[in-house]
Write a protein that binds this DNA or RNA. Structure first.
Length: 387
RNA sequence: GCUCCCAUCGUCUAGAGGCCUAGGACACAGCCCUCUCAAGGCUGGUACGAGGGUUCGAAUCCCUCUGGGAGCGCCA
């Protein structure tokens, strides 16, 4: 019997859960559900400078709002540093890695020189075959992996197919820093292995990382997971999604009045399709979703379509649920709690209200009429019509 | 610069050699329905990036070009 599928979503807590991350999480979640497996959550917080608790909270909030859940407690990558160090040392002992004593300044100089010569910087392996005894006394060292010099590294990807990288382009990257903390490249491999991850589903900006990471798997004689590198989401202008476009946190979409159901459906259809189906329930998504149907090309974020889908889910939503959603928005606008009377009027009007709004903001605007004090203030135009 | 990836309507996509004078959805325009606005119905325009092959036949296979994207840190 094949082992059960284990996927993981592994965001770095340096900001909110952005839309691309949300889709990656969704795909991981759907694939796990589809196969009867589990999804794990790992927080990649090894960058102590940039990681914040607020970001962790925002990510967890975002996932929860989207209705995506994971098995067990979130795993802190930082907390596993000792284990990462242990494996780095083992790689060293196995002769698969080596200590390198160059200084950051030396490295920077190397890069500048390469750039000046019109080449691009790759570590030259200057310590690969030198004996550590040649190191200047007291010099700090990092541990670098001994990457193969010739041939190619092949990645068999569920989405991208077979992708080959010439090994001459993969340099001896650092796995353990001078301060003994692991680099991302190394920590990911150790964690995915230890967590029993069978399928790594992530953005295709990690495709070349898969080649590097497979070098570590190889060196440890570990079995590499199945890879699935999904295309990135671009902004409406085709450029990489930036803060200027829709690279907002999912909570921004919540604030803009989108329902999680709509955002999920929309994100699912970005890069994945199932015939002519557009409105897809979660149950259907779980039944239908598979990695081989994920497209290979990047897609652009289109608010109009999200809006349309949102209108659909709004119409379908139970009125009571929408009252709960809209009431806080109205209270915020009014600056006071809704009276029981106002709330009941709102509930009574909801069936009509939800039929014509595209998002909760609009719905709240249209609902103001139901909850403000009587008599209703008339604007000049209304006065004129009435008279 | 090097490596890798991608390429069907404005956008998301269906399409895995003949079912394609290329289908659906969003958006757009017009009409219908309607006390308004939505929703709904109908109609319309708009796409296989270019050039070469292979084949009786190519959106689908191959090559080149062009255009987009990603990666090349003691960041993740």
């Amino acid at each position: 019997m094949p082992s059960a599928v284990v996927t993981r979503f592994a965001p770095s807590p340096t900001g909110f859960l952005h839309i691309g991350g949300a889709r990656t999480a969704l795909f991981n979640w759907l694939y796990a559900k589809h196969t009867g497996g589990t999804m794990l959550l790992r927080i990649e917080d090894t960058d102590r400078e940039r990681s914040t608790d607020a970001a962790i909270a925002a990510i967890i909030d975002g996932l929860t709002w989207l209705g995506l859940d994971w098995e067990g407690q979130p795993i802190s990558q930082f907390a596993r540093a000792a284990r990462h160090r242990e494996i780095a040392l083992e790689l060293l002992a196995r002769g698969k890695a080596y200590r390198a004593f160059e200084t950051p300044e030396e490295l920077a100089a190397m890069r500048d020189k390469a750039k000046a010569e019109g080449r691009f910087a790759r570590y030259d392996g200057r310590w690969r075959d030198r004996d550590p005894s040649e190191a200047p006394a007291g010099a700090a060292s990092v541990i670098r992996i001994k990457a193969p010099l010739e041939g190619e590294t092949i990645i068999h990807d569920c989405v991208q197919g077979r992708v080959a990288f010439p090994n001459k382009d993969l340099d001896d990257f650092v796995i353990l820093r001078a301060d003994l903390t692991p680099t991302y490249m190394h920590a990911v491999v150790v964690d995915d292995h230890d967590m029993g991850v069978t399928h790594v589903i992530r953005g295709d900006d990690h495709l070349t990382n898969a080649a590097r990471q497979s070098i570590i798997y190889e060196a440890m004689d570990w079995q590499a997971p199945e890879w699935a590198h999904i295309p990135l989401i671009h902004g409406p202008d085709g450029a990489k999604l930036s803060k200027r476009h829709g690279a907002l946190g999912v909570e921004a979409y919540r604030d803009m009045g989108y329902l999680p159901d709509a955002l999920r459906n929309y994100l699912l259809r970005l890069g994945w399709g199932h015939g002519d189906d557009e409105v897809i329930s979660t149950a259907q998504a779980i039944a239908w979703f598979d990695l081989d149907a994920v497209g290979k090309s990047a897609s652009r974020f289109d608010f109009a379509k999200l809006e349309n889908l949102n209108g659909h889910y709004l119409r379908e939503a139970a009125s009571a649920r929408l009252v709960d959603e809209v009431a806080p928005r109205l209270e915020k606008q009014l600056g006071r709690p809704l009276t029981a009377l106002a709330r009941s009027r709102l509930a009574a009007g909801m069936d009509g209200l939800k039929a014509r709004a595209k998002n909760l903001v609009e719905l709240a605007e249209n609902a103001v009429f139901y909850v403000i004090d009587r008599p209703l203030p008339l604007n000049p135009k209304a006065e004129q019509i009435l008279s």
